[in-house]
Computed example of a mutant assay.
Amino acid sequence: MTRGLLRLGLALAVALGGLAAVAQPAAAAPAFQLPFPCDQVWEGQTRTNHSPQNSVDFNRANDEGDPVLASAAGRVSRVANEGSTSYGRWIEIDHGGGWTSRYAHLSSQDVSVGTQVARGRQIGKVGNTGGSTGAHLHYEQRLNGADVRITFNGSQILYFGSRSYTSRNCGGGGNPYTPEQVCGSGYGVVDEQALGTVGRTYLLYNNSNGNNCVVTLKSVSVGTASAVSAFLEVQGEARGTDSGNFTHYAGPVRKAAPGKCVKWGGSVGSTAYTSGFEHCGS
């Protein structure tokens, strides 16, 4: 009896394979946040003739070149350039469970395919590339390849029309800073290391001058002074360190390292990371 029922169940599963697939519960959506730095206010516009219809365009005054952040943690799955058509320069992030997000019309792309990004990590800058008539960010959320209605901080945005939104993309533990903001213009993240759940240390590089930069961001006791450090050592030279009781981050520690290997790392409280000599020239 049991074997017969099992065979019957398997036959039904095969016969109704498509229906069974449809009946599977969708993966829970990531905790998406606005793709902009903490507390920034942006105007979001949705419209019935948008392609795809569930996407949103974001604008604010003089926004060209403004940072674009990952709206949720994930792996960069696409970095593309459509030239003067369609998305222009764009990025896709895979968040797992079938969920992805897209960021289009960028002026710069600061990550590469395969990069693991935390929510709040800068991935590019607002631009006017592709089929765009003015600087803005075109943003989408997708589930299993299909565009879906967008949510931020657990709430669906307005469809259809315009509304102002305040970013709560404040980094892990509410840290409002990104490593690019701390190190300054021209720097992009080339490596990063989580410090358990208490923070993250980053190595950045500036292609224009060959300088490296290290910063450690806290994700606990943010806004309260506590022990944080960041260090950078160019092979053959003395180590530079910034350590103390800081409210948000340690660093930036910058050193010129064109064509040279570096050792880098940092700590939050008793949790620390030290790399070997690596990234020789980048």
Rank of each mutant, 00 (worst) to 15 (best):
C183H: 07
E43R: 15
V189G: 04
G120T: 06
R89S: 01
L12R: 13
S226W: 07
F32R: 14
D63M: 12
Q156L: 11
W99H: 07
R89C: 01
Q45R: 15
N81T: 00
G18K: 13
G265W: 12
G265A: 07
N54Q: 15
V148A: 09
Y139W: 03
Q24A: 14
G83H: 01
A135K: 07
R7Y: 10
S107E: 09
S162G: 01
V222M: 07
T247R: 14
L6T: 03
S86R: 02
Q116A: 08
E140G: 03
R121M: 11
G88T: 00
R60P: 02
F160T: 11
Q53N: 05
Q33P: 00
T274G: 11
I150N: 04
N245K: 13
G97H: 08
N245Y: 00
I93F: 03
N59G: 04
S267V: 05
G174S: 05
S164H: 03
F58L: 08
E64T: 04
L195R: 01
F32S: 02
G265E: 06
S51K: 15
V41P: 02
T274I: 09
A257V: 05
Q181Y: 03
W90N: 14
Q156E: 14
I93P: 07
V113N: 01
S267W: 04
V215E: 02
G154Y: 08
T151K: 15
L69Q: 14
G196D: 10
A256C: 05
S167W: 08
S55C: 10
S226A: 14
T133A: 11
G269Y: 07
S282V: 02
Q122Y: 01
T129M: 11
V220G: 06
Y103I: 11
S208M: 05
E43K: 15
L69F: 08
H95W: 11
W264M: 07
E140K: 02
R142D: 05
Y165D: 01
L204N: 09
T48C: 00
R168P: 00
V22R: 12
L19G: 05
S55N: 14
V56Q: 09
A80G: 01
T178E: 01
G124S: 07
C213T: 10
E180T: 15
T216L: 10
T271M: 05
S282Y: 12
N175F: 12
R75A: 10
V253E: 09
I123H: 00
R239P: 03
Y205S: 11
H95T: 08
D66C: 05
